[in-house]
Simulated scan of single mutants.
Amino acid sequence: MTKGDDAILFSRGADVRMTSCPINPSWVIEGAPVARNFILSQSLDGSATGLLWDCTKGVFNWHYDIDETVYVLEGGARITDDDGVEHNIGPGDHVLFRAGSHAVWRVDDYIRKVAFCRNPVPAPLLLIARIFRKLVKITGFGGKASPTPAMFGG
Rank of each mutant, 00 (worst) to 15 (best):
M1Y: 10
M1A: 15
K3G: 12
G4V: 05
D5S: 14
D6H: 07
A7G: 00
I8E: 02
F10T: 08
F10P: 11
R12M: 10
G13Q: 09
A14F: 05
A14C: 10
A14K: 15
D15P: 12
V16D: 10
V16W: 11
V16N: 12
R17N: 10
M18Y: 09
M18L: 15
S20K: 11
C21T: 12
I23Y: 04
N24R: 15
W27G: 10
E30M: 06
A32P: 00
P33M: 05
P33L: 09
P33T: 05
V34G: 04
R36V: 07
N37I: 00
F38G: 00
I39V: 12
I39L: 14
S43W: 04
S43R: 08
L44W: 05
D45V: 05
S47H: 09
A48H: 11
A48T: 15
A48R: 14
A48C: 15
T49M: 14
L51M: 15
L51H: 10
L52S: 04
D54T: 03
C55W: 01
G58L: 08
F60N: 05
N61V: 05
Y64G: 04
D67T: 08
D67A: 07
E68M: 01
E68W: 03
E68I: 12
T69N: 00
V70Q: 03
V70G: 01
Y71I: 11
Y71W: 08
E74V: 08
G75K: 07
G75Q: 06
G75P: 00
G76F: 01
G76R: 01
G76H: 02
I79R: 07
T80P: 01
T80A: 02
D81E: 00
E86K: 09
E86D: 12
H87D: 06
N88S: 11
G90C: 04
G90R: 10
P91Y: 02
P91R: 12
G92F: 01
D93T: 08
V95K: 05
L96Q: 09
L96G: 02
A99K: 09
G100H: 07
S101F: 11
S101K: 06
H102E: 04
H102K: 14
H102V: 07
A103G: 01
V104D: 00
W105S: 02
R106D: 14
R106C: 05
Y110N: 00
I111A: 07
K113C: 09
A115S: 14
A115N: 03
F116D: 02
R118S: 10
N119E: 13
N119P: 01
A123H: 04
P124Y: 05
L125C: 03
L126T: 07
L126M: 12
L127D: 11
L127K: 13
R130M: 13
R130I: 07
F132C: 12
R133L: 10
K134N: 10
K134G: 11
L135N: 10
V136I: 08
V136Y: 00
K137N: 07
I138Y: 01
I138R: 04
G142N: 02
G143L: 04
A145T: 04
S146P: 07
S146T: 15
T148Q: 02
P149I: 03
A150N: 01
A150M: 05
A150S: 08
M151W: 06
F152P: 02
G153Y: 03
G154I: 08
G154E: 06
G154L: 06
